[in-house]
């Protein structure tokens, strides 16, 4: 078991390294190929009427004129060993793992990510609960009552959920539920630790909006899986044994259906933890997704690298957890081992 975990961890680290290189390549190397000069890149981070001196100083401070390999080496070294930055007459230490300083706001990237993590985690946790519970429940009911009105309505809704973009459902719910009918408070994030009730009130719309999209997939997936399983021989056997329908469905049919669900869930949760850009932007939540999109718009390279790494990290982590959960969900995996 331990070697299994270590192997997975090793693969995860390798993946992170590859993601880092690709991101670095996209944002550092591609612009050079496109003919952007170091001064041109520096112009992103200075004011509206920069003097040539300010541009030159910025190029030097950010190391934009260094060869690519040098910049990459610096990035990795900073990440692993930490570094020091000078501001005015002050020197600030950035301890490992140092993701660097944001070019445009002069704040440490890691600190910013950590301070925004609670927002994204709140969003991800609440939405995930809703979409898994809701999606699976609807899927099971639809499968059991296949062809009923409930099934048809639920599956049409699921289709709608999959096809409607978040900025549409989100803006719609904001316009009507918040601003027109005043059913929910204006979304201004409140930490869970500060006021749990306000936290729920503020987060409920983003949760539902984000969950709607995912729940739809889960419902369809569960329904299909359930229908397939319900047709299996052992289900007929279970029924023939005289087991109650409830037991048949939940104990015998649902369990194997859950295996693929858990797999997608790991990926989905990892993605959302890495920043639900659309949801966070629509509801003006200052989470990691918002941080990422702001950084991309202002070409704030250290931040882009930082959030990309963080996103990849979450996916790797969630996948690892899912892999470890397999034997619990599916006894066959245990036996095979």
């Amino acid at each position: 078991m331990l070697t299994y975990i270590l192997r997975r961890l090793g693969a995860g680290l390798l993946l992170l390294a590859i993601v880092t290189m690709v991101t670095f390549w996209i944002f550092y190397v591609l612009p050079r190929w496109a003919g952007v000069t170091p001064e041109g890149m520096a112009a992103m981070y200075v004011g509206k009427a920069p003097t040539p001196e300010a541009l030159a100083a910025t190029v030097e401070r950010l190391g934009l004129d260094q060869p690519i390999a040098g910049q990459f080496y610096d990035f990795i070294r900073t990440l692993l060993l930490g570094t020091e930055y000078t501001f005015g007459r002050q020197t600030v230490e950035c301890a490992a793992p140092c993701l660097g300083y944001s070019f445009s706001t002069n704040t440490p990237v890691l600190e910013q990510i950590v301070s925004r993590l609670p927002v994204t985690m709140s969003l991800a946790a609440g939405a995930a609960v809703i979409w898994v519970v809701g999606g699976v429940a609807v899927g099971v009911l639809s499968a059991v009552k296949k062809g009923s009105i409930f099934d048809r309505i639920a599956m049409s809704l699921a289709l709608v959920g999959v096809s409607l973009p978040i900025y549409f459902t989100g803006l719609l719910s904001l316009a009507f539920l918040v601003h027109n009918w005043n059913l929910f408070p204006v979304p201004r994030y409140v930490p869970l630790t500060e006021d749990p009730i306000a936290w729920v009130q503020v987060m409920i719309l983003p949760w539902v909006t984000l969950a709607f999209l995912h729940a739809a997939q889960y419902a369809r997936q569960t329904r299909a899986g359930m229908l397939e399983t319900l047709g299996e021989d052992y289900i007929r056997t279970a029924r023939a044994k005289g087991l109650s329908e409830r037991r048949v469905i939940f104990k015998h049919a649902l369990r194997p259906t859950l295996t693929p669900i858990v797999t997608i869930f790991g990926l989905d949760l990892g993605l959302v933890l890495g920043g639900a850009i659309l949801t966070e932007t629509t509801f003006s939540l200052n989470g990691i997704g918002k941080y990422a999109i702001d950084a991309i718009v202002s070409k704030d390279l250290p931040v882009i690298l930082g959030v990309t790494l963080m996103g990849a990290f979450f996916i790797v982590l969630c996948n690892l957890i899912v892999d470890l959960l397999y034997p619990v969900v599916d006894p066959r995996v245990r036996i095979a081992k």
Binding site: V46, G47, K48, P50, A54, L55, A56, A57, E60, F87
Partner: peptide
């Protein structure tokens, strides 16, 4: 003077 003579440490303001 820190606003305008800072060796490129403060890059946003007018000059």
């Amino acid at each position: 003077i820190r606003g305008d003579f800072n060796g490129g440490s403060l890059v946003h303001g007018p000059s």
